[in-house]
Design a protein around this nucleic acid. Structure first.
Length: 278
DNA sequence: CAACGGACCTGCCTGC
DNA sequence: TGCAGGCAGGTCCGTT
């Protein structure tokens, strides 16, 4: 089951960015509390010293990374599988798995919660695009460089399933397991089809489908932005808009008379309509 | 180089 | 009821 806790894919990360940025951009850090530093990589011990007194210039996103820009460097945050950011009053008691508070002036804190600790919080003084974690990423889904001839070229040596190809962050960023299934369904492409066996035209359709699904999910998330400043709120995770994901055995919403099937591809559960997707 | 498997971690669900 | 076990997911890393 997904959705109740919601894995942060690109739309969730972008929704988070839009949700928190207005509350913290331009504000000055008055305190940093790290209760648990053991994330995917340890949170740098010197982070509180570095951030204290600095003004947050703005919040950017690259792939699923959130980039908090300061004068002397950038805080790189990844939400992993279970991470979330929320704006809370600075005196709000922390709960289990609330690992970090960035306290800002005006009494508001940015709180990182990450039960599974697959997330990241790192500091870099270089341009974040050059950071090892970001340096080899493919284009954003909306980048004009992400086009059918680009995909076709990259696919030539790829004998594996197109779903794995699409989820490869060196190819394009931000297409996780859920949206890979959704995009391929909308494009009518079978997830197991070898990447090299797909025409340029069909890749064009797939690119449009990827953008469509991600755009819709971001728009959907935007309708619940208010949740970022509430204790118990959850951003909209597009749950009810999903057409195939986690719908095994239920009728395809496209053709109506075939049941959605599920199958493990590349160690990930995948969902598709055997009638609509070839 | 592509492809694959393992590792990381916890909450939730299932089945005994 | 309690507990063990499986599963989910993004990303990196090591091996084939």
């Amino acid at each position: 089951m997904v959705g109740d806790d919601g894995v942060p894919e690109l739309p969730e990360v972008e929704t988070t960015r839009r949700g928190v940025a207005p509350h913290v951009s331009g504000r000055t850090i008055t305190g940093v509390t790290v209760r648990e530093h053991r994330l995917r990589q340890p949170i740098p011990a010197e982070l509180p010293r570095i951030l204290l007194g600095q003004r947050l210039l703005g919040v950017r996103r690259r792939a699923k990374y959130l980039l908090f820009d300061f004068r002397t460097g950038t805080l790189i945050v990844h939400l992993g599988m279970s991470g979330s950011l929320r704006i809370v009053s600075t005196n709000t008691p922390s709960q289990l798995h609330d690992h970090v508070d960035l306290e800002f002036d005006r009494g508001q804190s940015l709180r990182l919660r990450d039960p599974r600790r697959f997330g990241l919080m790192l500091w870099t003084t270089e341009e974040p695009a050059h950071h090892p974690l970001l340096a080899n990423l493919g284009p954003e889904p909306w980048d004009p460089a992400f086009n059918s001839s680009y995909l076709c070229d990259l696919a030539k040596p790829r004998t594996g399933a197109v779903k794995n190809f699409l989820m490869d962050s060196h190819v394009v960023v931000g297409v996780g397991n859920i949206y890979a299934s959704e995009s391929l369904h909308r494009a009518g492409i079978h997830p197991s089809r070898p990447a090299r066996r797909i025409s340029s035209a069909r890749y064009g359709t797939l690119i449009e489908a990827v953008r469509e699904v991600l755009d819709a999910a971001i728009t959907f998330g935007g309708t619940t932005l208010r949740d970022f400043i509430h204790e118990d709120g959850k951003p909209g995770y597009f749950r009810n808009e999903l057409r195939v994901y986690d719908r095994a055995g239920k009728p395809c919403l496209q053709c109506g008379d075939t049941d959605i099937r599920s199958r493990v591809i590349g160690q990930r559960m995948s969902y598709f309509c055997p009638h609509c997707q070839r």
